[in-house]
Design a protein around this nucleic acid. Structure first.
Length: 801
DNA sequence: GAGCATCGGGG
DNA sequence: GTGTACGATGCTC
């Protein structure tokens, strides 16, 4: 037996005949290692009957291995329970039946928690932590890590080591619009990027100064990939959409070429689950696209989540594009230009690495809070993260974890909805001096203040918080003791505030920023969790009360503001927009202070900022102003646009540009005259054919095979034409077209841009179907009729409406 | 407008 | 596998 420091990264399990083996993957002295441990699974049973002798009987039958009485809490109620140990999951169903036959009312809890998750929770260990272990070397079938040990004892430490990152990206053989197919098209190259490390592997020899490994052929190339990864020994192997593209592609190529990728032999295996995620045991496969598009989309608010867009937004770098129409020519010719492909390849790996560097602190921090491997964390939804954190917390509070809802429960819960957040709709128009105030951490502060969760819900009105009226009813939540979720949440909020304080002194600490992000994420997800149909601690009464309390608080602010002579322009969920009018900012600050004095301790209304000017627009279908469709400008001239990004992606660049310009002119100028003139000028330019064709290109992607389109939409007609010309077209191909001059249906006049002579686009189509729709709502908000735009330029008509 | 199907990212 | 369980948007009736 020997002592080691083990860096934990991943966990798996294997069921043997009489045992559950827990497999812990990680590193010892920078070598891949696997620890084998035993785990005896168990459930908690709560019964009002005396089940002692019955359990003895079950033990004799070997249905269970052991049991003992424990005083626990179930949903914060003290209960006498039995902890029952068993080996095989098969026994659980039988156990359930037997126990039910003895006591119909019996509760069997903690029976549906995957054993690996339970192990991590119970041992209070988390990936990225260094464990001090005592262990003995052994052999274990199917595991091929450098080191394999049988675990004797384990102790977590305070050490959290930064994982070693390696980003990668592949380039595949492609002919223009035809997407690469792994059954047919080879992988051309792969690029790796790490700290002070970059390497490209390809299998055609060219002269280049790039850091390239040249493989003999594609089979050799695949083996080189594996070799490089195992030599570099990353903790995180990072890709961009690698769950659904790079790794499955590599796997398929290995199958096609009959290469045995010994990813397997080193304890790394490729498996695809139904949602297409690729797991490599031992190495954490981190697909940052998954994390960014699913979990960071709410804050990033991008139109699309391509590597280029994400890089632009997160690290301020953009891609140099290559011409995919040429890739096959370059590759087939063995031309020197292959170097451009390799450069492009390396660029992608580099951007992936840099973006990863930026967000990995967030992932690491979540990993610690959620107490699960980062591989799982990045693929989780918010609800799961909250739930794992809650499950972990039960161990400190001696709580039993409730079971997941049954299928019937889930469908019931999905049927029932409740009223959500408040929206005070604005009257469309242009406004000056807008003050924005919002509640800081609104929902979390409500949950903690009113102690709302399943464990405090009561019929007893005494010593309880009463919710506002909800469908003619009120709900009540005990004032004490603290509910389970409110207590856990209070700690998260406390830690978040503390982290924020430290961050002020230590502004460059990325790990700290990550922790703040993770705590904030978890805090903000708690309300959603209480109303989430799959939640173990689901409570619709609590969730609907939280939104009701929120609406009530916002309405109180509205009332108070109006009583003090402010006009309320707009409100949404946790914020309200006030018109300052002739009032000074200091008066608004006084109002906010006055409101805050009356608020419960944890709730706070903040002055978010003052906008010099703002335009609020309605949606086509609504008379009143729409939620989240407005643009603001502050004193410094910074413009923020909300809600307009929903403009259809298939608009021409000119339409998008015009819309953006119009907003800018109106906000800067405070009047619509110039904006009207701008549009009139654009329209005139279109008519005079002064706008270059490239700005008129409309992009639409083919959503299904061409044959299955019943209606001949413009892009379908164009796609068919492209096919006839021998340009390959398939599902997913982006069709670019321009609507050309002429007679007949617009779709029949749509042509690929290369076929349209400069200036011979259909001006009236672009004016009526692109420019006007892009701006008409904005002018409507300003009470300008859209016809003013189309009329021939004439000074008289300006401003008449 | 509701209900069903597909797409997202990737070359 | 000690099972599962996306969500936003577009398309069709």
């Amino acid at each position: 037996m020997q002592n080691y420091d083990f860096y934990l990264l991943d966990i798996d399990h294997k069921t043997t005949e009489d045992n559950i083996d827990i497999l812990l993957f990680g590193k010892i002295n920078n070598k891949y290692a696997c620890l084998i441990d035993n785990f005896e699974n168990y459930v908690y049973v709560i019964s009002k009957k005396n089940i002692n002798s019955f359990l003895e009987k079950l033990k004799k039958e070997k249905l269970i291995t052991d049991f003992k009485e424990e005083t626990k809490f179930f949903l914060r109620q003290k209960v006498d329970s039995f902890k029952i140990n068993f080996i095989s999951q098969k026994n659980v169903d039988e156990l359930k039946d037997r126990l039910r036959s003895f006591d119909k009312e019996i509760r069997i809890e903690e029976k549906d928690i995957p054993v690996t998750k339970k192990y991590l929770i119970d041992k209070k260990i988390t990936p990225l932590n260094t464990l001090r272990i005592e262990a003995t070397p052994i052999d274990y079938e199917g595991i091929n890590t450098d080191i394999i040990l049988k675990l004797n004892s384990l102790k977590p430490t305070e050490e959290f080591v930064e994982p070693k990152l390696l980003a990668f990206d592949i380039e595949t053989y492609t002919k223009g619009t035809v997407y690469s197919n792994p059954e047919r098209d080879p992988i051309i190259s792969i690029a790796f990027y790490g700290r002070n490390f970059k390497k490209i592997i390809t299998w055609k020899k060219i002269t280049t100064d790039l850091d390239v490994i040249f493989a003999k052929d594609e089979r050799d190339f695949l083996k080189e990939i594996e070799k490089l990864i195992l030599d570099y020994k990353p903790d995180y192997l990072i890709g961009y959409n690698s769950d659904n593209f790079d790794l499955p592609y590599i796997k398929k190529r290995a199958e096609v070429l009959n290469v045995n990728l010994n990813f397997l032999e080193k304890g790394i295996r490729l498996t695809r689950t139904n949602r297409g995620s690729c797991k490599l045991a031992g190495i954490q496969h981190i697909d940052i696209y998954i994390f960014i598009s699913r979990l960071m989309a709410g804050t990033l608010m991008l139109d699309s989540y391509t590597l280029n867009e994400v890089s632009k937004s997160l690290i301020g770098e953009q891609k140099d594009e290559i011409d995919f129409n040429k890739v096959h020519l370059v590759w087939d010719k063995n031309s020197k230009e292959i170097e451009t492909i390799l450069e492009y390849n390396l660029q992608d790996a580099k951007l992936t690495y840099k973006v990863a560097e930026k967000i990995i602190p967030n992932i690491n921090a979540l990993t610690k809070l959620v107490n699960q491997p980062p591989y799982d964390v990045i693929r989780m939804m918010y609800g799961s993260m909250v739930e794992h954190h809650l499950m972990k917390k039960t161990r400190d509070l001696n709580e039993i974890i409730p079971n997941k809802p049954s299928n019937e429960d889930i469908s019931d819960r999905m049927q029932s909805s409740y009223e959500g957040a408040i929206v005070i709709k604005p009257v469309p128009g242009l406004y000056e001096n807008i003050l924005i105030a919002d509640f800081k951490g609104f929902y979390p502060s409500i949950i903690v203040t009113y102690n709302t969760d399943i464990t405090t819900l009561t019929k007893d009105k005494k010593n309880s918080f009463e919710s506002p009226e909800i469908n003619g009813k009120h709900y009540y939540f005990k004032k004490s003791p603290k509910g389970f979720i409110p207590e856990v949440l209070e700690e998260i909020v406390y830690l978040r505030n503390k982290t924020k304080e430290i961050m002020k002194k230590d502004k460059t600490n990325n790990a700290l920023k990550g922790e703040y992000y993770a705590l904030k994420t978890l805090a903000n997800s708690m309300y959603g969790y209480e109303g989430f149909f799959g939640a173990r601690w689901y409570c619709k009464e609590a969730a609907s009360s939280i939104t009701a309390f929120a609406r009530e608080h916002i309405l109180k602010v509205v009332k108070e503001a109006e009583e003090n002579g402010f006009k309320v322009l707009y409100g949404d969920t946790d914020s309200i927009f006030l018109l300052l009018g002739k009032k000074k900012i200091s008066e608004a600050e006084e109002l906010i202070e006055k409101i805050n004095k009356k608020l419960p301790k944890l709730m706070e209304l903040d002055l978010e900022g003052v906008s010099k000017r703002g335009i609020f627009v309605s949606k086509k279908t609504e008379e009143t102003g729409a939620k989240k469709k407005y643009a603001l400008i502050d004193e410094k001239g910074n413009i923020s646009v909300k809600g307009f990004e929903t403009v259809r992606r298939d608009w021409s660049y000119l339409a998008k540009e015009t819309q953006r310009k119009i907003l800018e002119i109106i906000l800067k100028d405070g009047s619509s005259e110039k904006a009207v003139k701008y549009v009139q000028d654009i329209i005139e330019k279109i008519r005079k054919k002064q706008i270059p064709n490239e700005k008129m290109v409309i992009r639409t992607s083919l959503k299904k095979p061409i044959e299955s389109y019943k209606n001949l939409e413009a892009h379908v007609v164009v796609a068919k034409h492209m096919q006839k010309m021998g340009i390959p077209v398939s599902v997913g191909t982006t069709i670019r077209f321009i609507v050309a001059e002429g007679l007949g249906l617009m779709s029949n006049r749509s042509k690929i841009p290369e076929e349209v002579e400069e200036g011979s686009y259909d001006s009236e189509y672009y004016i009526n179907n692109q420019i006007v729709p892009a701006v008409e709502m904005i002018f409507e908000a300003l009470k300008k009729d859209k016809n003013i735009l189309i009329k021939q330029k004439s000074q008289k008509t300006l401003g008449e409406f």
